[in-house]
Design a protein around this nucleic acid. Structure first.
Length: 111
DNA sequence: CTGGTGACCATTA
DNA sequence: TTAATGGCCACCA
């Protein structure tokens, strides 16, 4: 019954769906791209989550920084400012990094 | 239509 | 532990 990956064509506003889901991640917690995709009902669209966040209008009320990759790391380019900003925002919420990694067992969102 | 791209992921070596 | 690989598919030029 549910969406099995291919019938996403008829779904309108995939980006909105994704943003909406990201808005549900609690303060001080993180979710992976794949997890966001699953919760949004878009199984095989982990990459689209990254794309959707990338194309997020500046100042749009979505906690994009709470989304990281499956390894528990920030996916943004090492050199970019956004990467530093993301880490800063997370640490300000109490998320701890061990080297460059976040313990998903401890800070992962229980959706 | 076609082909390239990517803020991904699970598996394998 | 990291690195490579194949799959994934909406988006864009």
């Amino acid at each position: 019954m549910g969406l099995k990956g291919k019938d996403t064509k008829s779904l309108p506003g995939l980006h909105e769906r994704i943003w909406k889901t990201v808005r549900r991640i609690p303060n001080g917690r993180v979710a992976t791209y794949g997890q966001v995709a699953r919760v949004a009902g878009l199984r095989s669209h982990a990459r689209l989550v990254g794309y959707a966040l990338h194309s997020l209008p500046p100042g749009f009320p979505v906690p994009w920084h709470r989304v990281i990759n499956a390894k528990g790391r920030i996916s943004l380019p090492v050199r970019s400012r956004h990467r530093q900003l993301q880490r800063k925002l997370l640490e300000a919420e109490g998320v701890k990094f061990t080297r460059d990694r976040i313990d998903l067992e401890e800070f992962g969102w229980n959706a």
